[in-house]
């Protein structure tokens, strides 16, 4: 099972690095989703390892949450995108101290 956990860790790291380095809001967002799915993978792998279903059930809920997040995120990014005609995170810079 270890290899699945390692894979999930790698995916998680990729997502994490992606969030930190990418500038396009949609891509950042996709990286976040990647992180969630990496967690799902880890959950399922651990569920198999421990021989109970908790992890799999969690994966279901995570999917739901991820979906809700997609819906909300897409709405927010779309509004910004329509206003600015740009989805770059750097362009969103009105809020500064």
């Amino acid at each position: 099972m270890t290899q699945y956990v390692v894979l999930s860790a790698i995916l998680f790291t990729i997502g994490c690095v992606g969030v930190l380095t990418r500038r396009n809001a949609i891509v950042v967002f996709m990286c976040v989703e990647l992180m969630l799915n990496a967690s799902n993978l880890a959950f399922v792998a651990f569920a198999k390892q421990h021989g109970n279903l908790d992890g799999q059930i969690t994966a279901f809920f995570v999917m739901v949450v991820a979906a809700a997040e997609v819906v909300i995120g897409l709405a927010i990014i779309m509004t910004i995108f329509r206003t600015r005609r740009s989805a770059s995170v750097d362009d969103a810079s009105l809020l500064k101290y």
């Binding site: 998680f12 994490c16 976040v32 992180m35 969630l36 959950f43 390892q49 910004i80 810079s93 809020l95």
Partner: peptide, 26 residues
Amino acid sequence: EAALKYFLLGAFSSGFFLYGAALLYG
């Protein structure tokens, strides 16, 4: 813009939470 930042960072952090939960479950 506030919503966007809040959302992106919030989603990012909940990703961390979730992975932490997965590891703790493991």
